[in-house]
Design a binder for these strands. Structure first.
Length: 197
DNA sequence: ACCGCGATGCCCT
DNA sequence: GGGCATCGCGGTA
């Protein structure tokens, strides 16, 4: 598929802007056997660092796990949750990050996988794509890497598209922060995660 | 359609 | 030892 690399500084912006800008971008995986899988980012969530009760770095926590979140903007933060799932984030710097919540399979997937929406959820997409701690702290904007983010050429990204927003998912114990509208989705996409916006 | 719950292991106190 | 940025199942309606 035809894609356009993004500047390495892509994620060096306000976290909410990055969460919005990532909608419509491509996540590309190149395997050792030269097979390629391409998907479109259709849903993200912003995590606003030390001031955000729902964020892993809330209160300035510097632990082994949160190390990646203080890395260079554009690095991957992959964490393990509920004993069986990984979740993938794009670090934006200073302890903030954007969670990738859902993808639309575009290339390198079967019709059945598309029908079954195997990438519609933060845990599901990592399971299906084989994303694990191995990817933690890797640069996500290097077109030579096994996993990277790029823009779609002559595709959705070249046209205007509407983004909807809603409350974040699964953080009910974070007080008011649970209601902050930091979840973003591609309007009318059939590949958004549960629960509905 | 919605709701409740169990699985399962790491992280942090 | 408690909690968790999830998911899919089984029950009730």
């Amino acid at each position: 598929m035809n894609f356009r690399p993004l500047p390495p500084t892509f994620a060096r912006k306000d976290t909410i802007e990055v969460a919005l800008a990532l909608i419509g971008k491509l996540l590309i995986l190149q395997a050792q056997d030269f097979s390629v899988r391409v998907s479109r980012i259709v849903e993200t969530e912003a995590y606003l660092g030390e001031e955000d009760p729902a964020c892993h770095t809330f209160g300035g926590r510097k632990t082994p796990r949160t190390q990646a979140m203080y890395g260079t903007p554009g690095t991957a933060y992959v964490y393990f949750i509920y004993g069986m799932y990984y979740c993938l984030n794009v670090v934006t710097g200073k302890g903030e990050a954007v969670l990738i919540r859902a993808l639309e399979p575009l290339e390198g997937f079967t019709e059945e996988q598309r029908r079954n929406k195997v990438l519609s959820g933060p845990g599901k997409l990592c399971r299906e794509l084989g994303i694990t701690k191995e990817l933690n702290q890797k640069n996500l904007f290097d077109p030579g890497a096994a996993v990277f983010i790029a823009a779609e050429r002559d595709g959705l990204e070249e046209h205007s598209h509407d983004v909807i927003h809603g409350e974040r998912v699964g953080i009910s114990s974070a007080g008011d922060a649970a209601h902050w509208p930091l979840r973003f989705g591609l309007k009318d996409s059939a590949f958004l995660s549960s629960p509905r916006f």
